[in-house]
């Protein structure tokens, strides 16, 4: 009798364990199957590359958040950083007439500076991660709107002093967001390369291991001689840099520097990163999971758009997916021991 009971529990646990490990992947495959059976052209090559392209910005932002999550921090300024970076890139080209290289490098540098400033607030001043980056989010949104005089920056825009902007966004820059190479959109390459680099960084370098150690137990990490502040700084600088990169892709995709365009990507990025926790049962922030989380959201959104669902139903689906993923992760954590 007792033995049988035990057997039952083990069996139950195994089922849970299986879902814990493969649940997110199964949901992704299920969504793919459902949409490909109900919708013509869903699995057509162009639409698949479309899905990848549509999640490229969310995935980059998600990766930025993932890195901040490894040290048990949270960077809420990622969306605002991306929005600001997009505006900087646009202003460099359209208003100031710079070429593609400065227009990419300048926003990335600004992203690094934002990361440094976040780190300064968190490490030196001692403000909680979320609060410091929340303040930065407001600050950056405001600075960005001021920097662009409250209006989008776009080709042939009227200049406040009179006349029309003489310069335009260069073709090479637009290719970052709109171009294709071997039939695959360039932002997809950017996303995949960055995800791979972040994956290698987090899993196969000393830095990555230390970041996870700090996130797991800061005191223990400190006692084992890890320079905590240095690694926290690295995490926030990388987060700022990746957010700015997402902003560059965003500007190239839109062909303009829109007002506050980065804001909606914050929550989607957070969702991607947390869905990523549950992928393969890692239970911690990881690059591969974030990429899959972003893709899952992208697949759902793509299918729902084809089925003419309005946006609030899309939000319901997003919410359910996130809840399921979080449910798996946290249930496992609670019942670990």
């Amino acid at each position: 009798m007792r033995q049988e009971e035990r057997r039952l529990t083990t069996k139950k646990l195994d089922i849970f364990g299986f879902f814990y490990k493969y649940g997110t992947i199964l949901v992704t495959i299920g969504a793919l199957l459902y949409f490909s059976l109900t919708l013509d052209n869903f699995l057509n090559f162009n639409n698949v590359t479309n899905i990848f392209r549509s999640v490229s910005i969310v995935a980059l932002i998600g990766l930025a958040i993932t890195i901040s999550l490894t040290i048990d921090g949270f960077d809420l300024s990622v969306g605002a950083t991306a929005g600001f970076a997009a505006v900087i890139a646009a202003k460099f080209m359209v208003i100031w007439g710079y070429g593609v290289v400065p227009a990419v490098i300048a926003p990335l540098l600004v992203g690094v500076v934002i990361g440094l400033f976040n780190a300064f607030l968190i490490i030196k001043i001692g403000i909680q991660d979320m609060l410091a980056t929340l303040s930065m989010m407001f600050l950056l949104t405001g600075i960005s709107v001021t920097f662009q005089d409250g209006s989008a920056i776009y080709n042939f825009m009227p200049i406040p002093g009179g006349g029309i902007a003489e310069h335009t966004m260069s073709k090479a820059f637009l290719a970052i967001g709109q171009g294709k190479w071997l039939g695959i959109p360039i932002p997809v390459y950017v996303m995949l390369v960055v995800a791979l680099l972040v994956h290698i960084f987090l899993n196969y370098t000393k830095y990555g291991r230390y970041l996870y150690m700090i996130g797991g137990n800061q005191e223990a990490a400190k006692l084992s001689g890890i320079k905590i502040n240095r690694y926290k700084l690295i995490a926030y600088v990388m987060s700022g840099f990746l957010s700015a990169l997402a902003g560059v892709v965003l500007a190239a995709r839109l062909g303009s520097g829109e007002v506050d365009a980065g804001a909606p990507y914050l929550m989607d990025g957070v969702a991607a990163a947390f869905v990523g926790f549950s992928v393969l049962g890692t239970g911690k922030p990881n690059a591969f999971g974030t990429l899959l989380g972003a893709l899952l959201m992208g697949i759902l959104l793509n299918g729902l758009v084809m089925m003419s669902f309005p946006y609030y139903s899309q939000d319901i689906v997003k919410g359910i997916v996130l809840l399921l993923a979080l449910g798996l992760t946290y249930y496992k954590m609670k019942h670990k021991g």
Binding site: L39, D40, N41, F42, N44, N46, N47, N50, R53, S54, I57, L250, R253, L254, E258, D260, A261, A263, P264, L301, N302, V305, M306, S308, P310, Y311, Y312
Partner: peptide
């Protein structure tokens, strides 16, 4: 053939993605 409704907050990028989807599939 299709109705797109993506709300009022920052619809431009979302509208772009949605129409790209529809244009590649029909």
């Amino acid at each position: 053939v299709n109705t797109i409704d993506l709300g009022t907050s920052n619809p431009m990028p979302k509208a772009q993605t949605a129409l790209e989807t529809l244009l590649t599939t029909s």
